[in-house]
Simulated scan of single mutants.
Amino acid sequence: MIKDILLPLPSYPKTASPNELRRAVDMARLLEAHLTGLVVETAVPMPVGFHPFSTELETQLKTRQSEVHTVAQAQLDAFEAEAERAGIARQGIIVKVSEGSSHPAMDYARMRDLTVVPAISDSQACIDLVQALVFESGRPVLLMPEGKQDTFSLDSVVVAWDASRASVRAIGDAMPLLRRAKDVRLVTVNKDKAMPDNATGPELAAHLARNDVKVTLEHVDRGNETVGKTLDKMAADADLLVMGAFGHSRIRDFFLGSATAHVLKNPLRPTLLSH
């Protein structure tokens, strides 16, 4: 069950778009879940090399911090307005974060069923946050990009299947969504990984059907394309992509698998990632 969702909302230098915010709220309404809007207010850093600080500089910093707080409050107000429109149970929080400190979303995510992260274009900080949440929170993460539609729907869902532990985990985490979907396509990209005989797509499709999922099975050759681009083509008209996330750790630095890196850098649709 997904009954408790976290929505971390950035305030600087970019905020979540109204489209992303509305779709996240609509998702919570669809699942009849509680939604926590966590607005992060970043502390304006002191410039290096200016010591002692002049009165004028301190005034400028206070003015800039006030502007950041105003943006954070506006983001919280936008969240509250959307949640009120949708009639969902919610909690809105502003958390102040100093430069270099860990993101507060991690602790909150570990106490929620799902974290929905608005995709901020050209933001390495957003990619780093999603990556950290996927590999360290122990919970699934749904990356919510800008979309053509203003509302979240589950008319069509694509599930990437390669018989890996991560893809099994993703399917289990997404089961409440899969059961609500009108059409679920289980997609295996051939010529990618060797599929074990005892973990075939047909067996998984039968398992999903027993769980009241309306599922069909598809195989596709990737040819000269990457797995990420192949999945993009297969999910071109999908409302949601479900996939396992892959990465290799070296002293807490993750080197992402190609398909995972592709999705994080080029999110085209809501994508649920689990590890």
Rank of each mutant, 00 (worst) to 15 (best):
I2P: 12
K3Q: 15
L6T: 08
S11G: 08
S11Y: 01
P13V: 10
S17F: 04
P18Y: 00
R23K: 04
R23V: 05
V25W: 05
M27L: 15
R29Y: 00
E32D: 14
L35A: 11
T36C: 02
G37A: 13
L38A: 03
V40L: 04
T42P: 07
A43M: 03
V44I: 10
T55N: 04
E56R: 03
Q60T: 05
K62G: 04
K62I: 06
Q65Y: 05
S66K: 03
Q73E: 14
A78C: 06
E80F: 07
A81H: 08
R85H: 12
A86E: 03
I88C: 07
A89D: 14
A89Y: 04
R90E: 12
R90A: 13
R90M: 13
Q91I: 14
G92P: 00
E99Y: 12
S102W: 03
P104A: 03
A105M: 03
M106G: 02
D107V: 13
Y108N: 01
Y108P: 04
A109M: 08
A109L: 08
M111F: 15
M111D: 04
T115G: 01
T115H: 02
I120S: 11
S121F: 09
S121P: 10
D122E: 15
D122I: 10
D122H: 12
Q124N: 09
Q124P: 08
Q124R: 11
C126N: 13
D128G: 07
Q131M: 08
Q131W: 10
Q131E: 13
A132H: 13
F135M: 00
E136C: 02
E136S: 11
P140H: 04
V141N: 09
L142A: 02
P145W: 02
K148C: 01
Q149I: 08
S156V: 02
A160T: 05
S164A: 06
S164H: 14
R165F: 09
S167L: 12
R169L: 15
I171S: 00
G172M: 13
G172F: 08
A181V: 05
D183F: 03
R185P: 04
V187C: 09
N190C: 15
K191N: 11
K191F: 05
T200V: 12
G201M: 15
L204G: 13
A205H: 12
H207K: 15
L208G: 11
V213I: 02
V213T: 05
K214I: 05
K214M: 08
K214S: 11
H219G: 14
G223S: 03
E225N: 14
E225T: 09
T230Y: 11
T230F: 06
A235K: 04
A236L: 02
D237K: 06
L241N: 05
G244S: 14
G244W: 14
A245Q: 01
A245F: 02
F246Y: 14
R252C: 06
F255G: 10
L256W: 13
L256S: 07
S258D: 13
A261N: 15
V263S: 05
L264M: 01
K265V: 10
N266V: 00
P267D: 02
P270Y: 03
T271V: 12
S274C: 09
